[in-house]
Computed example of a mutant assay.
Amino acid sequence: MSIEINFELSDADLAHFRSMMNATIEKSQGLSDDEIISKAKELVNNMEKSNLPEFVRTRMMSLAALIDAVQDEEWQMPEDEKREIMLSLAYFSEPEDIVPDNVPVLGYIDDAIMIELVLQELSLDLSAYRQFCGFRATEEARRGDAAKVDRESWLAGTRSQIRSSMRRNRSSTKKSRFFSRIM
Rank of each mutant, 00 (worst) to 15 (best):
A156P: 04
R136L: 05
L155K: 05
R59Y: 05
S165M: 12
L63W: 00
D125M: 07
E81R: 10
I162D: 02
A40S: 10
E73A: 08
Q120A: 10
E35A: 04
F132Y: 06
W154D: 04
S172P: 04
K148H: 12
F178C: 10
A112P: 06
R168E: 13
N51F: 11
V56P: 00
A156F: 03
V44F: 11
Y108I: 01
G144R: 07
L122W: 02
R177G: 08
E73V: 14
V70C: 03
L126Q: 08
S153L: 08
R181Y: 00
R177V: 15
K174P: 00
M114A: 12
Y91M: 09
T24N: 15
S123V: 14
I115F: 01
R168T: 15
D34T: 00
S28F: 07
E48F: 00
D150A: 07
S28Q: 07
M20L: 15
N22A: 11
R83T: 14
N169F: 01
M166A: 10
D101A: 11
V44G: 09
I98G: 08
K174T: 12
N45Y: 05
K49I: 06
Q76S: 13
D125H: 14
S153H: 03
P78I: 03
S50C: 07
M20A: 14
V70Y: 03
S32T: 15
S172A: 12
S19K: 07
S88I: 04
E152R: 04
M86V: 12
E54W: 05
D145L: 14
D33I: 03
S127F: 03
F179R: 04
P95N: 11
R167P: 06
R130S: 11
S180W: 00
S93E: 03
I25T: 15
R168K: 15
D34L: 02
E26I: 04
A128I: 05
Q120Y: 01
S2D: 12
I115A: 12
E79C: 00
K174W: 01
N169I: 02
R59C: 01
T173G: 03
A147S: 06
M183R: 13
E74K: 12
S28A: 15
N6S: 13
I109G: 11
L31Y: 04
E116G: 14
A40D: 05
L31S: 05
D145S: 08
D13F: 01
A112V: 02
S10G: 07
S164R: 09
L119C: 00
Q29V: 05
A12L: 09
I3T: 15
A147T: 06
S165F: 05
